[in-house]
């Protein structure tokens, strides 16, 4: 279980190894403060949605999942994308209401990217990987938490670099987003070093 946890943070980092969740990753990483806020939101949503989606898949959607209701032949696999999206969207809506009430500054800073968390490829991707690799409930929980932490780590590191880049003297057209993309490319090259590492 520990191996799965640390793998999902480093070698299989959803942001830097699988390039999921890039829109939010690039858009809200201007400041470390906002990045940490987004990272924590993602950990919460990921940590809850992956196990919940697992339960849904195991008892309602998967092939033979409805056996407990006497409908063992029914295979609702093709509905999984839309159901997972529904669960995540509901979780994000709740999160938006909580943030608006208790952390209005963060809510304002995130702007349109908060509802966009609902379709963050990292969150959906996490659930889809969980289905593909057949994790059980405990593994889903660990995987959800691990990938969330990994993504949060990546965006915080990236924000830290971008904050420093603000003081760099570079061509006007390259400032900001252009430099950020190039930095992201270099970071991803660095993380690709983790691919294939398997610890005992």
């Amino acid at each position: 279980m520990m191996d799965l946890f640390q793998r999902s943070i480093f070698e299989e980092n959803l942001a830097l190894s699988f390039f999921l969740g890039m829109c939010t990753f690039l858009a809200v990483s201007r400041q470390v403060k906002t990045a940490v806020g987004v990272g924590i939101s993602l950990i919460v949503v990921q940590g809850i949605s992956v196990p919940m989606n697992h339960l849904l898949y195991a008892y309602v959607l998967g092939p033979g999942a409805l056996a407990w209701a006497g409908l063992g032949d029914v295979d609702l696999n093709f509905l999984r994308l839309i159901t997972f999206l529904g669960i995540v969207a509901a979780l994000v809506q709740v999160l938006e209401m909580v943030l608006e009430r208790y952390a209005p500054a963060l809510h304002a800073a995130m702007g349109i990217y908060l509802p966009l968390l609902a379709i963050n490829c990292a969150i959906i991707g996490g659930s889809l990987f969980m289905v593909e690799r057949d994790y059980d409930l405990a593994q889903s929980a660990v995987y959800g938490l691990g990938t969330g932490i990994g993504w949060a780590l990546a965006i915080t590191a990236f924000a830290a670099i971008r904050e420093r880049l603000r003081y760099a003297d570079m061509p006007r057209g390259l400032e900001g987003l252009g430099a950020a993309f190039i930095v992201a490319g270099i970071m991803s090259m660095g993380f690709s070093a983790f691919a294939g590492v398997s610890l005992p």
Binding site: L174, L177, G178, A179, F181, I182, G185, M189
Partner: peptide, 19 residues
């Protein structure tokens, strides 16, 4: 063919656009 190149090409594209 690896993703880092896509990042970098996009970065250069944005630079060209803003120039």
């Amino acid at each position: 063919l690896l993703a880092p190149s896509a990042f970098i090409i996009l970065g250069l594209l944005i630079w060209a656009l803003r120039a």
